[in-house]
Amino acid sequence: RFWPSSPSMGYLDFSDGWHADTRGDTHYWDVWHSAKSFEAYRTVNPRFASEFGFQSFTSMNIIETFAEPRDRNPSSPVMENHQRNDGGNARILETMTRYFRFPRDFDQMVFLSQIQQGLAIKTAIEYWRSTKPRCMGTLFWQINDIWPVASWSSLDYGGQWKLLQYMAKRFFLPLNVVAVPVHDDVQTNSRGTPVEGAEPTSIVLRAINDTGAPTSIALDVRAVKIGGGDRVVFSGNCAVGPDAAIEVSKLAAADLAADEFLFFSWRDAKGNLLGENDYFPKPYKAYELVSPTITSAWSDRDGQPVLTLSSDKPALFVTATVDLPGYFSDNAITLLPGRTTELVFTPRHGATVSSTDLAKSLKVRNLAETF
């Protein structure tokens, strides 16, 4: 069978399906090209979202290869030349002020741009996956770059992972749990789109099973204060059929205090941790973030370096980097007090590295540092 184009309304259907989400595949670019909020992803319900994307700056160590210190400014000619889309740098910054407080320096701006890129794609994919069986596929644009540039890619030029690539490992988990905000009619406009900045009236937790077998998960949902402390708002088991998405729990948004966010984790029948996720009902700039003290420790396990992280306060988008080429098993994670997280480092190109070598250049950052 021949699919005539992408997007297309269907088999041998050559009509314009650019903005149609009733059948065929859909390209949805309004969030990037029209500077709509991330919440706009939840106003379209495609059968197959085959192309959508959001930009970030390429990583700081890549920028250092083409920009002198005096050129490391988003509106410098050098940075504007290393941009895949006219006006892209301005659009990145416009979005940044919508969700975050303006970063304190250029390095933090680059870091924050990759956080928000990941959040944009996460918002879209988590929602569309939660509508299964209506939406049965998602492809984000794009995977890689052929030169060092600000773009929609999840990999830097040369293959280094941007934060989107790490976040994609989590929002594409075959067994996943996501939070979907629900707005009442008062908070939507005539097209049903949530009013800019409107807070949800309720939050639905949906479990997604992309495997071909039925499964059961144990879900733990906590309301966490941004400065520390948490309480359980849901705990229970749920069965999810094969290739399905179901509602597990629903809570009123008003049940969350102004300084609380949701953190949830799910386990299999044997108690093995399958995944973790969080949901913030308000933009991150609305929270008074605290500065956490993050503790790190290296060890070697079966010939692989392992980094163990813990924090005394809730720490958001905790990201570990080292100078040696390679990638961690996870990154841009949420750390809560009393919980430790282990990140395994895999060197690139078959190199052999030790935890001692990695410790020399380790840098661990988090969202609070950008304020």
Rank of each mutant, 00 (worst) to 15 (best):
A90K: 06
L112G: 00
Y41G: 08
F52Q: 03
F100V: 03
W128G: 00
I115A: 12
M60N: 04
Q117G: 00
A90R: 06
I121Q: 02
I63F: 04
L112H: 01
I63T: 05
R42Y: 13
G87W: 12
F102T: 14
T58F: 03
P74F: 07
M79P: 10
D21G: 13
A49M: 11
N89W: 02
S37N: 09
N81D: 14
V31K: 00
D105M: 12
H27S: 07
R23N: 15
M96S: 13
D30P: 14
I63W: 05
I115D: 04
I63K: 00
R72M: 10
F54H: 09
T22F: 11
H33T: 05
N61W: 09
Q83P: 10
D71H: 05
R47C: 13
N45K: 07
A20Q: 12
F57N: 01
R72F: 04
F54C: 04
P74R: 02
S56G: 11
N45R: 03
G53Q: 01
A67N: 11
I125S: 02
R91M: 03
A124L: 03
F57Q: 00
T97R: 10
V78C: 10
Q108P: 12
R104W: 10
Q55V: 07
P69N: 07
I92Y: 07
S37E: 10
R70Y: 13
I62G: 02
Y28V: 07
M79L: 03
E126C: 04
R129E: 08
M96A: 14
E126R: 00
P74N: 02
I125D: 05
T123C: 15
E39H: 02
R70W: 10
G88W: 02
T43W: 11
R104K: 04
R42Q: 08
G88L: 13
K122D: 12
D105Q: 05
V78P: 01
L93R: 14
Y28W: 14
P103W: 07
Y127L: 09
K36Y: 10
Q108M: 15
H82A: 09
R72L: 06
F57R: 00
P74T: 03
N85E: 10
R91P: 03
F52R: 02
N45W: 11
R84M: 10
T26I: 08
E80L: 13
T43P: 06
R47N: 15
K36V: 05
N89Y: 04
E68T: 14
S76W: 15
Q114K: 08
P103A: 14
V44A: 12
K122M: 13
S130R: 03
D105N: 09
G53V: 07
P74G: 02
I121L: 15
E39P: 03
I62T: 06
T65R: 02
F48G: 09
F48S: 12
N89P: 12
N61D: 05
D30A: 12
W32N: 01
H33I: 10
V31P: 00
F111L: 05
M60C: 06
N61Q: 15
Q114C: 02
D105E: 02
R70N: 14
A35T: 06
F66T: 02
S75Y: 11
T58I: 02
T65E: 11
R70H: 12
H19R: 12
S59R: 09
T43C: 08
G24L: 11
R23M: 03
W29E: 11
S76D: 09
Q116M: 13
A90F: 12
I115L: 10
W32D: 04
R70E: 07
